[in-house]
Write a protein that binds this DNA or RNA. Structure first.
Lengths: 225, 225
DNA sequence: GGCATTTTGTCAAATCTGTGTAAAATCTGG
DNA sequence: CCAGATTTTACACAGATTTGACAAAATGCC
């Protein structure tokens, strides 16, 4: 799925039409706010980002994308009408993967998208990061952030959180968590899980209350709404 | 089984014919009311939903589908004549799995259906939730909702309800329920079941009366209508 | 229809169980 | 051996479960 952020509806239509007719799935956004809202629940393969946008401009958006562990590794192609060298350098410095100068032909768009995707895929697909509102768990970096602030978790805590976030709302029994996180051959059969849940809850601060205990059964991440 | 919601009988016929001739089972509905009626007793693999419909429009229907735990995870492909960006974004935001713009070719329809099914199947099948009209029991989340409102049940209450909903109309004797829910080696043999049935009936509100007592025998969930 | 008997509904009190919590004990890698 | 992570232990408490007593309803008999 490729996302196009472009305020001009006409250009956006053409971009999407072109991408879809070439076999990509595509979706458009008129501004950065829409993009960021959608990013909170989904993750595109690639973003085509216009520099000139109402509200936050493309360069600012790019900077924010790169600052967030959850979106750090989404490829971005910047698009701009201005051919100014400044934008170009600045964007590439901030980590844009490629650059398109308007007016660009649709074949150029497609070929650049393909090129960037090819480049990024060969870089190896990483595990997607899990997120819940402002809480982000990055499996590759093995790091968790809450509203951008790092949360230091131990191994067991991290693995527990990973289970929860990967299936929010689903109840995990203590046994399940034990064999899952501790390993099938775990001897001890005490309040071990409880204690780790407690420390995890503490470290998660406000998100701590998202871990609900289901009496007689186990724990689950607070379901939607 | 794929369901097509489309008010134009001609288009509906063609969709169904195409899907069936490609090996799918398909069934058509003229409006949202018919769809929702059918959903109360069955569950399709995928829904193709027209945006322009008499009565409730497709976007509203989609929103309702996504709001209901029982249908939240049914894949939906939206179809529309309007190429309006608004509809498209809104639908995808609401969780449509794909989008078809009329007039679409039948081969495109089939390929999109295949793509969505492939994507959703790999998402892994969990336990199916049980439902009775507006009452939904989700075994994985261990949660029950009545008309979307959560119903807090204790362990025993949940297990009882699960028995009833899994075989509506079947009478369970107290002994059966005791060994089933309480365990084979349950000592106490008093009014225990009755008391739990009572609390369950209370918490279920209007659905409480669906638990019928069969004198001398036990209890059962109210059979069909 | 009355009446006795049995079965079920209801309530509140008593009991039991699982969980939260803190702190001590143990383990692990450097 | 140390620091930090993990596990164990112990105990109090909230909430679930069970018990027991009685009221209400259904059934069968005359």
């Amino acid at each position: 799925m490729i996302w196009c952020v472009e305020d001009d509806a006409g250009i956006r239509e053409i971009e999407i039409y072109t991408l879809e007719s070439t076999g990509f799935q595509a979706r458009g956004f008129a501004d950065g706010a829409d993009l960021q809202k959608a990013l909170s629940s989904q993750r595109p393969e690639l973003i085509i980002l216009d520099v000139m946008l109402p509200g936050k401009d493309g360069v600012t958006l790019l900077r924010e994308l790169r600052a967030d562990p959850a979106t750090r590794d989404v490829p971005v192609i910047m698009a701009t009408a201005k051919g100014s060298e400044f934008d170009k350098i600045q964007s590439l410095d901030l980590g844009a993967d490629d650059y398109l100068v308007k007016p660009f032909g649709m074949m150029e768009l497609v070929s650049r998208v393909r090129a960037v995707l090819r480049r990024c895929r060969s870089a190896g697909e990483g595990e997607a990061s899990l997120r819940w509102e402002g809480l982000v768990l990055d499996p590759e970096a093995r790091a968790v952030t809450a509203e951008g602030q790092p949360v230091a978790l131990t191994y067991k805590e991290f693995e527990l959180l990973r289970r929860f976030l990967s299936r929010p709302g689903v109840v995990y029994s203590r046994d399940q968590l034990l064999t899952d996180v501790w390993g099938v051959d775990f001897a001890g059969e005490t309040r071990t899980v409880d204690v780790h849940i407690r420390t995890l809850r503490q470290k998660l601060g406000g998100y701590g209350s998202c871990i609900q205990t289901v009496r007689q059964v186990g724990y689950r991440w607070k379901g939607k709404t």
